[in-house]
């Protein structure tokens, strides 16, 4: 995978995990004024999630999850893809728009106003949860039974 692909993979994941409505909130008005056309209008479907027996063994089908995807093209013919969890057409469209803009001159601004914010919010969400989990960490100790 090239460096560009690794970067793109990272922001697409971030967009997929963002809370409902958040990406659209962060995109500024200028970006929303972009004229664009749908190559694939927002579409709801499912993805079969796989697990592995024993965590590391043979793959098996765990069950499906809902996913919404969208592909659009900016006037400059840059193509953006969006995949988000759940049934969220507006969010899939917003994700595709950000993906497209990140491949244009607007990338720096979009990184500052959208991706960096999402990243920080996600980091905070996870840190809070991890801190609550850490507060429930126990040290069980076995009692001396008096055999010695």
């Amino acid at each position: 995978m090239t460096e560009n692909q690794t970067e793109r993979k990272a922001w697409m994941g971030l967009l997929a995990r963002a809370p409902e409505g958040r990406v659209a909130e962060l995109i500024d008005a200028h970006a929303l004024n972009q004229t664009m056309s749908h190559l694939r209008p927002p579409e709801i479907g499912s993805v079969m999630v796989q697990g592995r027996a024993g965590g590391t063994g043979a793959a098996f089908n765990l069950g499906e999850m809902t996913v919404t995807r969208c592909t659009l093209r900016l006037d400059c013919s840059t193509v953006g893809h969006g995949h988000v969890q759940g049934r969220r057409k507006a969010d899939a469209e917003a994700a595709a728009l950000v993906d497209a803009l990140m491949q244009t001159d607007a990338a720096d601004r979009v990184r500052d106003t959208v991706l960096d914010v999402l990243e920080e919010e996600e980091r905070l969400r996870r840190a809070t949860r991890a801190a609550k989990a850490a507060a429930t960490k126990v040290d069980f100790f076995t009692m001396v039974r008096g055999e010695d």
Binding site: G51, T66, R129
Partner: peptide, 18 residues
């Protein structure tokens, strides 16, 4: 629902554990 495909097997060793 249309099926978009199958995921990669999830890596439970990477879990953020509650």
């Amino acid at each position: 629902l249309p099926r978009f495909g199958s995921s990669e097997p999830i890596e439970t060793s990477d879990m953020q554990c509650d």
